[in-house]
Design a protein around this nucleic acid. Structure first.
Lengths: 215, 215
DNA sequence: GCCCGATGTTGACCGCATGAACATTCCAGG
DNA sequence: CCTGGAATGTTCATGCGGTCAACATCGGGC
């Protein structure tokens, strides 16, 4: 087929990227389950199977979206922390940073529910017979978690560090913000009015900080 | 078609229940996305469309599974709490009850990951155009949450209750156990060895309890 | 005994994931 | 410049799932 007009060539030239963008847009609109190979292809104006030249299938496309979403999440946290004013007391500063990171985390979830959910989706093989892990082990590091963990370590070192600072404090804090995000975005606490939602967020943050102090 | 043998009648007699059981089994095996109308019908030995005589469609079937799963979750919490020894100090007893409920919660999630995920799934309309809420508002009460909230209230009244006991403490605690459960079952903390998993659980519980004291 | 409503069944349509075979382009050598 | 293979797209086909409409069967009240 001849080119209809302008840049309309048989070879797209940047299909992989275009597909990723479309897929990210889909995830933004409706979360991971909305990321549909055919729809992404349609939006890019290409046949469905073309995607298979660049991705192993829907799963891999979704994985790419997930990577993107995780990056955005971490960026949101860092922006929130950057906005936070410093403090003379290093312990106070550390506490504020933890809280700010958490606020950035939950804020991203609330503002970009689809992307947030995509950030933690796990591509499931249709049949649960073969494990089919994405990458043998080696979780590729999730910056959002790293940020949180490091801030908590700083907090622990900065003052009221009980002797037996538990190594799992980071995971505990993560659990809290992650659970909160999902309850708000996707769970029973969705449709909570903004006012009450804020109260829940702040209470949870208080729990995290108080927990970090006590552990 | 004539009955092939025994009780094989044209009319099943208890199809609704049979479908629910099959659907619950599916969810147990592979979570909500595994709950597939056709497969449930297949297992019951009935044609796919027969299900429509009893459910509005896959969505409603899934909702039913969710109800079942939520009940099981709450039962698991109550069992865990019942196993907990009492204490003379009411504050200590309350604290123990909260911890036990949480352990029951996370324990259920870890032992029944599929059902747990089903307990918090939200049936999404394929097209996000029309809201199509399951029930106008009125979340039908989630016993797991109620149990947790009541235990926390008891804890707050039982002693070291700071004056301004926040009303959202329950949601905060729920966030922690919910997030923890999902991270362990479905998230980046899945494939954590049991040992470390336990450490994370206990640390999170400590955070919740310490938070409940401090708030 | 008969007829209606409840309950199942067939057949069909559409969307999606995916694989095989075929078409078009691009580019590295000659 | 020309050409053949590698990249990259396309078409066609298969199989699964959700769902609807039309038809079949059963069970019980009249």
């Amino acid at each position: 087929m001849a080119a209809i007009s302008g840049g309309n060539t048989y070879h797209h030239g940047d299909l992989r990227n275009a597909l990723i963008c479309a897929a990210v847009a889909l995830a933004t609109e409706g979360g991971p389950e909305r990321v549909v190979l055919r729809e992404a292809a349609r939006r890019v104006g290409v046949s469905p199977t073309a995607a298979y030249r660049h991705f192993d299938g829907r799963g891999e496309l979704l994985l790419t979206v997930r990577t993107h979403a995780r990056r955005e999440l971490a960026d949101s946290m860092e922006r929130a922390a950057a906005r936070e004013p410093g403090a003379d007391d290093p312990a106070l500063a550390a506490e504020r940073r933890v809280a700010a990171l958490c606020r950035g985390y939950v804020g991203f979830a609330v503002e970009q529910p689809g992307l947030y959910r995509a950030a933690f989706c796990v591509p499931r093989p249709a049949a649960p017979d073969e494990p089919a892990q994405e990458r043998p082990q080696a979780e590729p590091e999730i910056r959002a978690f790293t940020l949180l963990r490091e801030a908590l370590e700083t907090l622990a070192r900065s003052g009221a560090a009980r002797p037996g600072t538990r190594p799992a404090t980071g995971a505990a804090a993560w659990s809290a913000v992650h659970g909160l995000s999902l309850l708000l975005v996707d769970g029973p606490l969705r449709r909570l009015p903004a006012q009450r939602r804020n109260a829940v967020v702040e209470t949870t943050l208080a729990m995290v900080v108080s927990g970090a102090r006590a552990l």
